[in-house]
């Protein structure tokens, strides 16, 4: 099925969904050297986010998170894409800088809260993020 989405950062990619209802901070929550969730208090603790389509409602607003995402891109450990309900500028900064600095980035889309529930871990998804007609196909 095709889920309508809003483009935050353009691009297309595919991968397996890794989904949580808990917010994620890329500082303190993700180990930038391994790409694994490193916060013991997080329900995804120990999971690798690399090449996954990472699904979480919104970021947890650390200003250092942008740098951690840039490191994940540098080491080719970044997620394939991110799907949020809302995305704050702090989260989008990493992939924007990655695009210009390393030529590496990933798309981000937003979906409605009602569709968010459909995006369960393990499902394969295709993300098309563009100015008009963005979608997630599962």
């Amino acid at each position: 099925m095709e889920i309508a989405a809003t483009c935050i950062l353009p691009g297309t990619n595919r991968g397996q969904l890794l989904s949580t209802r808990q917010p994620i901070s890329f500082w303190g929550c993700v180990d930038p050297v391994t790409g694994n969730i490193s916060d013991r208090r997080h329900e995804l603790f120990g999971e690798s986010i690399s090449e996954k389509v990472l699904v979480f409602p919104f970021g947890k607003g650390s200003s250092t998170g942008s740098l951690m995402i840039l490191e994940l891109l540098r080491l080719n450990l970044a997620p394939a894409a991110i799907i949020n309900i809302r995305t704050e500028p702090l989260l989008a900064t990493g992939p924007v800088v990655g695009k210009h600095f390393y030529g590496k980035t990933f798309p981000i889309v937003n979906v409605e809260e009602s569709d968010f529930k459909l995006l369960k871990t393990g499902i394969h998804a295709e993300i098309v993020s563009q100015k008009k007609g963005s979608y997630v196909r599962i």
């Binding site: 930038p32 050297v33 200003s63 250092t64 740098l67 840039l70 490191e71 500028p89 924007v96 210009h100």
Partner: peptide
Amino acid sequence: DLGDLYGAERMIAVSQVHIDMTLYMVDAG
């Protein structure tokens, strides 16, 4: 890019900056 992304109409001048990125965290920095 960030301005376009979040719908800014224009740029504005700032009188000074405080840089947060001064701690060594990762090599990308």
